[in-house]
């Protein structure tokens, strides 16, 4: 089970990502537990597997319109499917990597796996609660999902 302090690490990482990389702060809400069913999956999802000291997954999921605007804000001119996949992977990788500041070196992160559509491919570990961190940015919404044993 994750602690409030541990979740705050991911909230701070998400806040910092949008303010720094996307050149516009996001409104990052309080994490909540998924009570029933699966956590939200949008059109593009970047997923990081966590091993070592903790095990589980962290994923960032967002819509095409949001990723399009993010790429534009980052100065990217090629608004392609490939770059949207790249972006969701990079967001998940950056926030997970930044978490090592608090979790330490043994919080081992994988290279990103990207899923476009096909939410059934996102599998969270059994018997582990998923926390959703809601992200509102401009008129768009996205989610960071943290599921760690």
């Amino acid at each position: 089970m994750m602690t409030k302090v541990e979740l705050e690490t991911f909230v701070e990482g998400t806040t910092n990502y949008f303010a720094t990389a996307a050149n516009q702060p996001a409104s990052v809400g309080s994490p909540y537990i998924v009570q029933e069913g699966r956590p939200t999956v949008q059109e593009f999802t970047g997923l990081i597997s966590i091993a070592g000291k903790r095990r589980g997954i962290v994923y960032f999921t967002a819509s095409r319109p949001m990723l399009t605007v993010m790429l534009m804000r980052m100065g990217e001119t090629e608004l392609t499917q490939e770059n949207m996949c790249d972006l969701v992977g990079e967001v998940a990788n950056t926030i997970s990597g930044n978490a090592r500041r608090d979790f330490g070196k043994d919080f081992m992160i994988s290279v990103p796996t990207v899923v476009a559509g096909e939410p059934e491919k996102i599998v969270t570990p059994d018997n582990t609660r998923s926390f959703v961190i809601p992200i509102n940015w401009r008129s768009h919404s996205a989610q960071l999902v943290v599921c760690l044993e």
Binding site: N93, T94, I95, S96, G97, N98, R100, R101, F103, G104, K105, F107, I109
Partner: peptide, 9 residues
């Protein structure tokens, strides 16, 4: 240039 922000890395 990395996201891995722990000192050990």
């Amino acid at each position: 240039i990395s996201a891995l922000s722990d000192k050990a890395t």
